[in-house]
């Protein structure tokens, strides 16, 4: 990321703490091409998840929540937060999904590893973001809002979670009013959240199916978070 252009403190902070993109580590445990791709992807997701948990602690207001609420929000919203990044990186790449700079999967590759449904859903989300021409500021804010808005149940301290959400909403509104000047922009971004949740639900279902039906081994953190869904 380049230096933050936003004068909004919350969004500038989110930009500064955004982790650098990870590279995929090619799995060497099998000669089966599609299995190799899938294991490489799962390893990448596990490492991204670890970074996301560290990043969440830097979202203004997150660390003030109770530990129970922090856990609930992450358990509900982690896949949405990760997919914001995938969809954003996959813009203007033709028909590929860019999970990492060195892990780009087209439709046929996704189908071969059992992720055909996820491919369709993620391309839909990618096209949506592309048509909205998102800025980096909007991407990091959407990511934080996806976590804050994860509708975790039960919530330990609903007021604190509400204040956390309100803080991010205010930041988005201020940014849109001062930087983009489009009257309905903040609302349009919020209206893209249902598609993000739908896509994340499909992703979670797909990885759980691969784990249970095809016995794909998953890292402990990734499995724990998938199971929490």
């Amino acid at each position: 990321y380049t230096l933050p252009a936003s004068r909004n403190k919350v969004i500038s902070h989110l930009l500064l703490t955004e982790p650098s993109p990870l590279a995929a580590n090619q799995d060497e445990s099998t000669n089966d091409g599609s299995l190799k791709t899938l294991l490489t992807l799962c390893d990448l997701l596990n490492r991204e998840l670890l970074l996301l948990i560290g990043w969440a602690k830097h979202i203004p207001g997150f660390s003030g929540l109770s530990l129970v609420d922090q856990m609930s929000l992450l358990q509900s919203g982690w896949m949405e937060a990760l997919l914001v990044g995938v969809a954003w990186r996959s813009q203007r790449t033709g028909d590929e999904l860019v999970f990492a700079g060195n892990l780009r999967l087209d439709e046929a590759q996704c189908r071969a590893v059992g992720l055909a449904d996820l491919y369709v859903a993620l391309r839909h989300l990618t096209c949506k973001y592309q048509s909205m021409n998102l800025s980096q500021e909007e991407v990091v804010t959407l990511k934080a809002m996806a976590l804050a808005n994860s509708d975790a149940d039960p919530v330990d301290c609903a007021d604190s979670v509400q204040r956390f959400q309100d803080g991010l909403h205010e930041a988005l509104q201020e940014y849109e009013a001062t930087q983009r000047g489009e009257q309905h922009r903040a609302g349009r971004l919020l209206m893209s959240l249902p598609l993000l949740r739908q896509t994340a639900d499909r992703a979670v279902a797909a990885f759980l199916r691969l784990h249970r039906q095809r016995r794909i081994p998953l890292h402990k953190l990734l499995l724990e978070m998938l199971d929490a869904k």
């Binding site: 948990i53 530990l67 856990m71 992450l74 402990k220 929490a228």
Partner: peptide, 20 residues
């Protein structure tokens, strides 16, 4: 908490090694 051990440890900034 026991069921979600790793996330719990990561959020608590545990100094003990976390088995991922």
């Amino acid at each position: 908490k026991e069921k979600h051990k790793i996330l719990h440890q990561l959020l608590q900034n545990s100094t003990s090694p976390v088995d991922l």
